[in-house]
C-alpha cells in the first residue's frame, strides 16, 4: 500500500518521496509510541486503561476507562485480554506502561494523543467519582468466516442437523486427544482431495487445535463453493465446553 501511494505521489509531481517499508508493526516493535484516534477510542471494541494513580482517575477519567495505576499494572496484566486493542493514557508513566505491555506480548497497544488533558481539550466526554467497573469485560467480535461458539456447540451437540463439523487435525492428534461428537476428521492436507465427501447444501464448521489450520481449510472450502465457517478457538479452552469422545 505504501509503495502504491509513493508511486502516485511521484506521478503527482512530488520530488522528495520516501517509504517506510517496515511500517507500523516495526515502529511498535521498536517500543516507539503509536496513537489511537478519538473516534476509535469512543466507538471501537477496545480496552481503555487509565494508568494514573487511582485518586486522579476518581477526580476525572475518560468515559469508559478502566483504572489500573501503573504500580499495579504488572500484577493485573493477566486480567487484560491479549487480543484486544488496548489503549493507554496517563502522565509520563504511560510510555513505560506501553513498553511493559508490548514486552509482555500485547500486540495492539496504543496511546491517547495528549493524554487526559488532550482529551478534555478536545471537548470529549469524561466521568468522575468512584470506580465500580474493575473487572475488565471485552468480547471479541467474530472475524470474516468465523462461526460463533454458540452455533458451533449446537452443531457439536447434534441440535443443529444442518451443520457438519470437520476436525482438521491430524489422525494422531485425534487418537491422542479425542474429538467432538458429530465430527468428521479430515486433516488439513487431505481437504483438497477429500472435500467431495462433503455435502454442499449443509453448513460446514471447521475446527483444529487453535484455529490456524481451520482458517486455511475454510478458505479452501469457500473457494470450492462450500458453505463453510471456522472456529477460531483453542479447543483446550474451557470456554469451548463441548463433549469430547474418544474414538
Amino acid at each position: 500500500m505504501s509503495t502504491a501511494s509513493a508511486g502516485l505521489a511521484k506521478k503527482f509531481g512530488y520530488k522528495n518521496v520516501r517509504v517506510y517499508l517496515d511500517g507500523e508493526p516495526a515502529w511498535a516493535k521498536a517500543y516507539l509510541p503509536t496513537y489511537a484516534t478519538h473516534d476509535f477510542i469512543k466507538n471501537g471494541n477496545v480496552v481503555l486503561v487509565d494508568v494514573r494513580p487511582s485518586e486522579e482517575a476518581v477526580k476525572g477519567r475518560i468515559k469508559g476507562a478502566y483504572s489500573i495505576p501503573y504500580e499495579q499494572l504488572d500484577d493485573r496484566l493477566d486480567d487484560i485480554p491479549r487480543n484486544a486493542p488496548v489503549i493507554l493514557y496517563g502522565d509520563q508513566e504511560v510510555l513505560d506502561a506501553m513498553e511493559d505491555m508490548r514486552d509482555d506480548g500485547f500486540k495492539f497497544v496504543s496511546l491517547v494523543r495528549g493524554g487526559f488533558a488532550g482529551w478534555i481539550a478536545s471537548g470529549e466526554a469524561i466521568e468522575k467519582g468512584p470506580i465500580f467497573n474493575t473487572e475488565i469485560r471485552w468480547v471479541r467480535k467474530l472475524g470474516k468466516g468465523e462461526v460463533s461458539l454458540d452455533d458451533f456447540r449446537k452443531a457439536a451437540s447434534g441440535e443443529d442437523k444442518d451443520a457438519i463439523i470437520i476436525d482438521a487435525r491430524t489422525k494422531e492428534e485425534v487418537a491422542e486427544l479425542g474429538t467432538f461428537k458429530n465430527t468428521i476428521n479430515i486433516p488439513l492436507d487431505e481437504i483438497p482431495a477429500r472435500m467431495n465427501e462433503l455435502p454442499k447444501d449443509k453448513k460446514i464448521y471447521v475446527h483444529c487445535s487453535t484455529g490456524a489450520r481451520a482458517d486455511m481449510a475454510y478458505k479452501e472450502l469457500i473457494k470450492s463453493g462450500y458453505n463453510a465457517k471456522f472456529l477460531l478457538l483453542n479447543i483446550a479452552d474451557a470456554e469451548c465446553d463441548c463433549e469430547i469422545i474418544r474414538p
Binding site: S5, L8, F12, V19, G23
Partner: peptide
C-alpha cells in the same frame, strides 16, 4: 489518494513525503 489525488498532499512539491503501511512484517 487515487480519488482525491494531490488535493490531500502538501502544496509544496518539494516537501518530504513519507508513506508507510502495515508491513512487510
Amino acid at each position: 489518494l487515487k480519488e482525491k489525488q494531490a488535493a490531500l498532499l502538501p502544496v509544496d512539491k518539494n516537501e518530504l513525503l513519507i508513506f508507510y503501511c502495515g508491513g512487510p512484517t
